[in-house]
Amino acid sequence: MSRFTRKLRQWTAHLFDLPQDMLSNVPRFTMIGNRQLFVENHRGVVHFSSEHMRLSLVTGELEVFGRNLVIRGIWTEEVFIEGSIIEVKVHGMEDT
């Protein structure tokens, strides 16, 4: 995506008051308590264990710590994680 298109999309999103993830490839995290985490717009699993999990994003990475982590479902765009989540960290998205 060129710089111009990204700017145009951001501008239209701002103009029509749309959520950011509708137009740009920004990931969306939905968390229900500390039990379930729903990640949209991911770019694959980097590391997966029952305590620690890393998901690749468009820019950067999502890191999840917890106990008994299980991927309930995995699709091309979405991941559904279940378990008792202790910590969620986002890396490499600071400047966008």
Binding site: G44, R72, I74, T76
Partner: peptide, 21 residues
Amino acid sequence: YAEQLLNKLSAKQMLIWDVAR
């Protein structure tokens, strides 16, 4: 490289569920 396999599976739109380590 089990993670890679998971990514390839989801990229090929194969349905998998209840993945546990």
